[in-house]
Design a protein around this nucleic acid. Structure first.
Lengths: 119, 119
DNA sequence: TTTTTAAGATTACTATTAGTAAGCTTGTTT
DNA sequence: AAACAAGCTTACTAATAGTAATCTTAAAAA
């Protein structure tokens, strides 16, 4: 990839360089557990305990924190139809669903190149 | 993306589930500075001080640490033609170069959806 | 030839983020 | 009424990141 200088230098509505946007974005979705949470949400709305059960090893504390992060960035929305009923579902927003291409690209890479194991 | 159960359950040569491989990989390339270092290496071999100058804000300590990480995972190689001359170049391996599709997918997402700003 | 400078690190220490474990609140089940 | 479960929150420990200073060696400058 030759760097697209026009893009690298360009500035987004928040006044950040697009290069910084890339930086922030990759690190945001690369935070611990973030990617795997997004991945699990790609097949539809899920409840807290469902995510908690599917994602082996995550703690409630971090799952809550990550879901709040995702909400705050407009990637996930919470739908609690009746606030009196304790049924909360987390669902990707359209912006969140568009992350699928990234997730897909990582899967492809892993299939072809093997994984980046943890040290 | 409907989950491909065959893939999710499958096991790689290191005995990890492919799903774990995805998890490790996204978190590895999402470590702080990692993505931006990979991005800057995509346009060719670079020396330590070049990376250090291009990547605003990174410290020598973290740049060294990340380059060692990348080397250990076979994504970057060091070429120091003559060990007596202090000229060290860092270059993506073929496996590292294949990360381009992921980087590209993130750029596309950012162009379309705006960035994940830092809190 | 001595002095200075620069590359490519390492070390020591502080601050931020993650992990572990327990507990809280309110509705539902027994 | 007691026990349980969902969805959090709090307190504390461990790991990772950030800041800053220092080190080594080769080459350039004086």
């Amino acid at each position: 990839m030759k760097k697209n200088e026009e893009f690298v230098q360009s500035v987004n509505p928040k006044g950040q360089k697009s290069c910084d946007s890339f930086h922030n974005t990759i690190e945001f979705i690369g935070k611990r557990w973030m990617g795997i949470i997004i991945y699990h949400l790609l097949d539809g709305p899920k409840r807290f305990f469902e995510l908690s059960a599917e994602i082996e090893g995550i703690s409630d504390r971090l799952l809550t924190e990550r879901l709040r992060d995702l909400e705050a960035h407009g990637l996930v929305m919470k739908n609690q139809s009746d606030p009196k009923v304790r049924k909360v579902e987390y669902e990707l927003t359209p912006k969140g669903k568009e992350l699928e291409d990234i997730i897909q690209a990582i899967f492809e890479w892993v299939k072809k190149n093997g994984c980046c194991y943890k040290e």
